[in-house]
């Protein structure tokens, strides 16, 4: 099931850093002139160029380690990721505790360069390494009747200073509809830039759903449960008016407190220009059909 989706831009296309920077400006210029309105795969992919390792690993939201962007990079080193196991249960043929190394030995790791759009209206491009979630779910055997997938982050008060505060109802929980979970774009990431994923980015394995706001891409997963009903999810529990279950990137549905029409690409410095946000974060042609007939302002 691996390799069901390929980047149109790969490292073979990678040009020197200086040329990258120029291209970023060109793309920003195009966006401003309205040419970006020609949405679609080719255009979205052309703008994809990864952020630096430094940017990706030092600007994080991982509230279990504190609410400031630099807290995770400062404090996440205390999280013990070896050994690690993931409980897969609910409506599966082979429920149980799966050792992380055993999972890895069964999976095909590939690189996926994805845009990453935070609900806070900033974005990055991350070269993830990982495997398709569909492969992991097939390993456990999804049963007839399963309609949703629920995920849970580790909750370790001794290793996570942030969980001493009731910022959210811990443990962090997320969920997907089964067809979203099985989509070829949906991956479990285990690395960035070919290196093991750092703790602050969700080691040892995390979900990445590139067409949804970043908080859907739950980190440091210890439990995956196949369910019949829509599972409760952390931000939706905290504020259902602001964070829907779907949380697809959508420039025309604003967050109640800010516009989602544009975003700031991390790495542009103090005078970075905002860029228009793309429908489904630029993956519209891949995923729009999942939501045929749904009112996306109601199911936000």
């Amino acid at each position: 099931m691996a390799h069901r989706w390929t980047n149109t831009l790969t490292y073979a296309d990678v040009t020197p850093r200086a040329a990258f920077l120029n291209r970023r400006q060109v793309m920003a210029g195009l966006a401003g002139s309205g040419l970006a309105a020609m949405a679609g795969r080719a255009q979205a992919e052309a703008a994809v160029e990864p952020n630096s390792w430094e940017e990706i690993t030092s600007y994080n939201n991982y509230y279990e380690f504190g609410t400031r962007k630099d807290d995770p990079a400062k404090y996440a080193h205390t999280l013990k990721t070896e050994p690690w196991s993931v409980t897969i249960d609910g409506l599966v043929d082979r429920p149980g505790e799966y050792d992380f190394q055993d999972i890895l030995s069964e999976m095909t790791i590939e690189e996926r360069i994805y845009r990453f759009r935070c609900v806070e209206a900033w974005s990055m491009v991350v070269p993830w390494n990982g495997f398709e979630l569909a492969d992991l779910l097939n390993m456990a055997g999804v049963q007839e009747g399963a309609k949703y997938v629920a995920f849970e982050t580790a909750l370790r008060p001794d290793e996570m200073p942030g969980v001493a505060y009731p910022v959210l109802d811990w443990p962090y929980r997320e969920g997907l509809r089964l067809d979203e979970a099985l989509h070829p774009l949906t991956i479990m990431a285990t690395g960035i830039y070919g290196r093991p994923i750092p703790n602050q980015n969700g080691a040892p394995l995390r979900l990445v759903v590139p067409w949804k706001y970043g908080f859907k891409s739950i980190k440091s997963i210890v439990r995956i449960t196949l369910t019949e009903d829509e599972p409760p999810t952390s931000w939706n529990m905290a504020n259902p008016r602001e964070y829907g279950f779907y949380s697809n990137v959508n420039p025309s549905v604003d967050h109640p407190r800010w516009s989602q029409a544009s975003e700031r690409m991390i790495g542009g410095g103090l005078f970075a220009k905002r860029q228009p946000t793309l429908m489904f974060n630029g993956y519209e042609s891949d995923v729009a059909s999942l939501y045929d007939g749904m009112d996306l302002s109601e199911y936000f």
Binding site: Y59, W122, L270
Partner: peptide, 14 residues
């Protein structure tokens, strides 16, 4: 903010 002393995202930080 100009020289990177406020971190990766200086606009929000400033």
């Amino acid at each position: 903010g100009l020289t990177g002393g406020l971190g990766i995202e200086p606009i929000e930080a400033l």
